[in-house]
Amino acid sequence: MFRSSPLTDDLQRLTMRDAFAAAAADLLDRDPRVAVVLADISADLFRKAAEAHPDRVVNVGIREQLLVGAAGGLALAGLRPIAHTYAPFLIERAFEQVKLDFERQGTSGVLVSVGASYDWAEGSFTHFGPRDVALFDTLPGWRVFVPGHAAEVPPLLEEAVDSEEGAYVRLSLRHNEAPHGGTDGALSVMRRGKRAAVIAVGPVLDNVLAAAEGLDVTVAYTNTPRPLDTEGLRDLAAETGGTVVMVEPYLEGTSAWLVSKALSDRPHRLLSIGVGREELRRYGTAAQHERLHGLDAEGIGARVREFLGPA
């Protein structure tokens, strides 16, 4: 029986959320245009920053429509807002605000979520956000960052804040042992092979690398799935006969339309691995949910082997 505890599983010295709060505080100190809008979540991590910058660190209480709308208003006033809360409340509950209060106003902002697909597994479905990146694919103009390690957060946040484009930064407790990738959005090749190009997004990389043991496949990493490095993908797919595996820590198939579009001029084959659509109605831990969705090394390895067939 697979057992793990929500209190000891995933213990980290520094979580992505900790790294985000520290990096955002630095940006508040450095850039008078930066403002942080909160809806109670993580407010304790911003207490010092709020004392130092009372006009630019705002907690609106448990009001997510106002969270995103006020961030849009700050952008209209010339600031660079960072709005932050749990993924399903930030993106799903306030989705019309995400849709109308930035790009349609001729502005942009930075949205930073925690919780990811099932970080708070014992909290269950209400706090799961696997649909977030798919929803951003329905909107023009947003970049999406999915760091795989806390050390990737500060440079990605800085990249997001310093740009004039909209950005969604998806933080998770799931993580790789070491940071990878840069901030230029390019796919980083971790190892090379001939039978498939396996693309790992953010915190699934370690599981993908473990799954690829003994397989003749390329593994490439990105923490910037939007815009997806489709040029890099085409180059890698050209070396694997157009065989691609996309492993994402959110809704399975989220990137299938982009891969298909990028390779539309040549025969290709795609396996999408990600979080399933079904509601499991289970508690437990994030690691257990990863396993249930087939996103652990064993699950990924089995699906890739089945997809590739005998060598």
């Binding site: 630019r56 709308g69 209209l76 006033a77 010339g78």
Partner: peptide
């Protein structure tokens, strides 16, 4: 779409203050 102007206005007012 109704109900967007007042939250946006809160943000603009906060922003005018912050700038």
């Amino acid at each position: 779409s109704l109900g967007h102007g007042l939250p946006l206005g809160v943000g603009v007012a906060l922003g005018q203050r912050a700038t």
